[in-house]
């Protein structure tokens, strides 16, 4: 029995799907905004082996690195409110879950970036009489950031993919909207084909940008 494909009817619902896509983007942006400061601080603490704090950073990074995004989302949405006695919106819960996990990945990225700066740079800065903070701020981090940019972009792509899980706890992102459209018009395959295509175009473009940045910022020691 050949299947009678019908994409035109789905296209009529395109605005609704794109609105879901917009929610996905907003959610990802919020998660990254939460992840960025935590990730940088944790990464620096770990790489600098700050006493007392470093083991905490390691435990934090290891826990979130090996946690499952969907489990974290469920935990933040279903369990966290019980623990703190405050009802969280789906948006807040998912932002916390994805943001914390991304911060762990980012911390590892920051650590690797700092590690990649040659010892000579550290020593030269110290020879000028700079303290740890100054050395990090003016000498090491600016160089490390340059190398981290392409990988950071890949992390952003991962965050976008993870954001599609938010529909599981009824946040109206793109997959959630797709389900609603699919049940409205009984066309799940066409709907999800189009949603898949939207995601592909978006993520593929981001990937190309990452590749471009990688070439552009490719490390050349001068």
């Amino acid at each position: 029995m050949p299947y009678d494909w019908n994409f035109t009817i789905v296209l009529r619902y395109l605005p609704q799907l794109l609105e879901g896509g917009l929610h996905t983007i907003i959610l990802s942006a919020a998660a990254i905004a939460l992840a960025a400061p935590i990730g940088v601080v944790m990464g620096v603490i770990r790489q600098q082996r700050v006493p007392i704090l470093a083991p905490i950073a390691v435990a934090y990074i290891d826990f979130f690195r090996t946690s499952v995004a969907l489990v974290l989302i469920c935990w933040c949405y279903f369990a966290l409110p019980v623990l703190i006695g405050v009802t969280l919106s789906t948006f807040t819960a998912v932002t916390i879950a994805i943001g914390l996990q991304a911060s762990a990945y980012l911390a590892e990225l920051v650590r690797a970036g700092l590690q990649s700066i040659s010892v000579g740079q550290w020593e030269a800065a110290r020879a000028l009489g700079m303290g740890t903070r100054l050395r990090l701020q003016y000498i090491i981090l600016p160089q490390a950031a340059r190398r981290m940019i392409p990988v950071f972009f890949l992390l952003v792509i991962e965050v976008f993919k993870t954001s599609t899980l938010a529909g599981f706890v009824t946040y109206p992102e793109i997959v959630y909207e797709a389900y609603r459209v699919a049940t409205d018009i009984y066309r799940p395959i066409e709907t999800f084909t189009i949603v898949g295509a939207i995601c592909f175009v978006f993520l593929f473009s981001l990937g190309r940008i990452a590749l471009y940045l990688e070439r552009r910022y490719a490390v050349v020691e001068r």
Partner: peptide
């Protein structure tokens, strides 16, 4: 194609598309 599509969408897509 696979790497630039979220895993969840792949899963749902195959769920509906396999019979066809």
């Amino acid at each position: 194609a696979i790497r630039n599509t979220p895993g969840l969408i792949l899963l749902i897509w195959f769920y509906y598309a396999l019979p066809i």
